[in-house]
Design a protein around this nucleic acid. Structure first.
Length: 256
DNA sequence: ATGCCGGGGGCACCCCGA
């Protein structure tokens, strides 16, 4: 069975409801993973159901929040990342026809000083544990979402970040590599080994107009799914629309 | 060194984002 799965940090699902409905209508993914919904579950828009998508939302007031939309009824396997003790709504996981799909919003790590950065590393550690358990059980796995890490220097426009930014901190990158070295494939780099594939442009300082972007939204695939990988693409067109999110959808297709 | 933009909470600015 083929799978078209997208990940999109929408920076408030209530502000972006119309854009999301329009995008679903035009792209018809099997699954859309949302991050930064920025609302509690009871405020999550009902309109996605009206256009044929089942939804699971894990939210909180003001900050964070993740959700998964699916054309098929949802089988939720986790509403929190096992091993991550913090309350923040940053992870939701489903079983889609035998494929485990983990939708994550990794802490940025720039706020809250040393403790804030440690929370980022704590999330990575818990994600490593979850991925290892799933891979040891030989499960098919997609981990997708906003990882808040630029894996290499090709993944941000020079000048877009300071050298001390948590998105390019050596410890953040080491945690990303350790996760990949479990045997997960960075889908974007499998189809495009080099060059820019930005998924985020800041609202400030004309970042979009200057193409001063970052690649921080990713899809990691377990070995059998990596073999079936067909395409990966950030949908840059969405960044040019009125009142856009600062992130664009990352669309991954896996052959049947 | 700071604001540049934008969302949420809530009604004055402040926190957070990347």
């Amino acid at each position: 069975m083929s799978l078209k799965i997208a990940s999109w940090n929408v920076n408030s699902v209530r502000q972006r409801e119309g854009l999301v409905v329009d995008w679903l209508d035009r792209h018809q993914p099997d699954i859309l993973c949302l991050q930064e919904i920025k609302c509690e579950e009871h405020l999550f828009p009902a309109r996605f159901a009206e256009v044929g998508y089942h939804a699971v939302a894990v939210g909180q007031k003001s900050y964070n929040g993740v959700a998964i939309l699916s054309r098929q009824p949802l089988t939720v396997t986790n509403r929190r990342l096992p091993g991550f003790a913090h309350e923040a709504a940053r992870y939701v996981e489903i079983d889609w026809n035998g494929i485990i799909v983990g939708n994550l919003y990794l802490p940025n790590g720039n706020s809250g000083s040393a403790a804030g950065f440690q929370t980022k590393l704590d999330f990575f550690e818990a994600l490593y544990g979850r991925a290892r358990a799933l891979l040891e059980a030989e499960r098919d796995v997609v981990l997708t979402g906003d990882f808040n890490v630029c894996p290499t220097d090709e993944d941000f426009r020079p000048g877009a970040l300071s050298a001390s930014d948590a998105l390019i901190h050596p410890a953040s990158r080491a945690a990303w590599r350790r996760l990949c070295w479990l045997g997960l494939t960075d889908a974007q780099r499998a189809v495009q080994p080099q060059g820019r594939a930005f998924t985020f442009w800041d609202y400030q300082a004309g970042a979009w107009d200057r193409d001063s972007g970052l690649r921080i939204d990713h899809a990691l695939l377990s070995p059998r799914l990596a073999e079936r990988l067909e395409s990966v693409r950030p949908d840059r067109d969405e960044r040019a629309r009125p009142q856009p999110s600062d992130h664009v959808p990352l669309v991954t297709t896996i052959a049947g």
